[in-house]
Each structure stands twice: as structure tokens, then as C-alpha cells.
Amino acid sequence: MQTATGTVGQRPAPAPPSLRTPDAEPVVTTDRLTKRYGQRTVVDALSLQVRRGEVFGFLGPNGAGKTTTLRMLLGLVRPTSGSATVLGRPAGTSVAQVGALVEGPGLYPYLSGRDNLRVLARYAGVGPGRIAAVLDTVDLTDRAGDRFSTYSLGMKQRLGIAAALLKDPALVVLDEPTNGLDPAGISEVRTLLRRLAAEGRTVVLSSHLLGEVEQICDRVAVVASGRLLVESSVEELRGLGRLVVDADPLETAVAVAGRLLGADRVSVVDGALHLQAAPGETAAVNRALVTAGVGVTGLRQEARTLEEVFLQLTEPGDPPPAETPGRRPRRVGRSAR
């Protein structure tokens, strides 16, 4: 797994997300999108926005409802309530400009890679010229004549991505595109996704590989149990770092910090106060503690990896913020503060 250090700023071709998608129009909008299977609510009043030209990460633990949400965006699954708009049209009707790979590549094992694309190109109504182009994009031209069933997992995945690109789509939806790939394969897909973004496409990508999301996504949404926990840029999400305070007396410090930040952002680990706080909040915390007569012997900001953020947000014992009635999911970022 990749480390978090400075990867976001190192994106080669495209400009940083804040420059690339300043206030770009939304490409995907969901409004209280909900799916129930029997008694179980699998996607629960999900409202989020994907902006034009961004690489949007859709994060969540197994069973969070990522795939179900993407299926609703594609019109494969009908929402129980709520709505989704894709490229300005109700979900499922804008298929002309959407390319998708959902839950593994669905291709015919007895056909060659090229024949699979031939079949899909006819369904898409695109000329045979696109077949060579997408094969080249995913670097499968050499093996295109072999039967799909003889492909390695990574080749199958790549052919699935090629199929998603046949229509030259403005929006590419990829559900765990690196599933089952080795590090080299993951890196290849990452390069490919960057290229797609550089070409001006919007990419929505679901994953639980945080390193991957951290490195290529502009913004992420974190979901658990079908609920939106956070929708923010990667930097902002990570920015809500951990402030570690060595304080005495600890009980008073917990109470003061709780009043300042809210009890759910305060915990005690190994005799130290751990606060979920943005770097800008450090001074305020220090002031409040000192004013209350607490001795502060140490105060340090710890940057977190997205992985830590993710694990903390999706921790089963910790009720997600959205669960509190009337409280909106946390939207970290300037616009929401």
C-alpha cells in the first residue's frame, strides 16, 4: 500500500483539483437516493455531486452500497425513492455518454477480446475504428485475438475498461477497477485513469483501496451502511487531522475540548488527549485549555493518511454522524464551514 506523503500534489498532467474543477457544473447529482431490498436499506438518502472533469472517489467498506449506488446511476437498478441525474438527465437515460465497468468485466468467455468488443461496439452503435483505439488504450492489442477465458485477471479487467471506453464517454464509471490486480496492474490502471481525466472526462471510481483513491482522486465520498459520511476533497478530508495534547488534569481537558469541538471528536488514547481537529483549530484548543486552568505540556498535529480517516469514519462502534436525526453529513471544506 502506498504512503500518503505528498502524492496528491505530484499529479503529472492535470492541474490541481481546485484549479481544474473550480465550480464546474455537476455531472452526477443524487438527491436522497435510496434503495431498499426487503427490509434492508442498502442506500440511504444519499445526496452527492460529482463535478465535471474531476476524478471522484467513492469509498466505503464491503457492503456499504457503492455498487448499488453506481447501478442506480447507470439505470440498471431502480431507486426505491429519491433521484439521480446524470449529465443533466434522469439516471439511465444518458447512457450515450456514460461508459461503465460495474462489479467486474462482463464479457463472453468463448469470444476473443476483439470479438467481445465487436459485439459491444455494435450494441453501442460505434464504428469498428473504436475497437482498435480502445484496445490500444488498455494495451491489449497484442492479445486481442485470444479468447477472453484465457486472459489473466488483470487483462480481463483491462478489457472491461476498454469496453467502457467504446463510446468515447464523457463520464466513466468504474466499480473497483483494480480489483484483483497486482501492484503493477494497479499502477497501470492508475496511469490510465489519469489519462482519462487529462482528456477531460469525468471519472467516478469506487474503491476500498485508499492508497489508490488518495493518489488519483480530486474528491471523495465516504459511505458506510448506505449513508454518506463525508464528501470532500482528499486534502480537506485528510486535513481534519489529529491533534494530540498532553494535558493535566486530563478529565478537565476532556470536558473543555468536548465543549469546544463536540464530544464525538474527543478521545483519550494512552493518557493523551486525541482531538479530531483541523490545523487551524490548534490555537483555539490551546487557548481554551489554558483558560480553564489545564496544564498543556505537549501539543502536536498529526497528519493522517486517508486510511486512518476511512477506518475512523467507518468504524462500526462509532455511530456515523449522518445517523443523528436532523444532522447533515459532514461536508469538510471551505464551502461548508
Partner: peptide, 13 residues
């Protein structure tokens, strides 16, 4: 079984 129906529908028809 092959998940190909979703691929066909994904192309727009």
C-alpha cells in the same frame, strides 16, 4: 451468469 447483460445494456440500447 457471465454478467454480460449489464455490459450490453451499458452500451445504451
Amino acid at each position: 451468469g457471465w454478467g454480460t447483460l449489464k455490459s450490453l445494456l451499458g452500451q445504451g440500447p
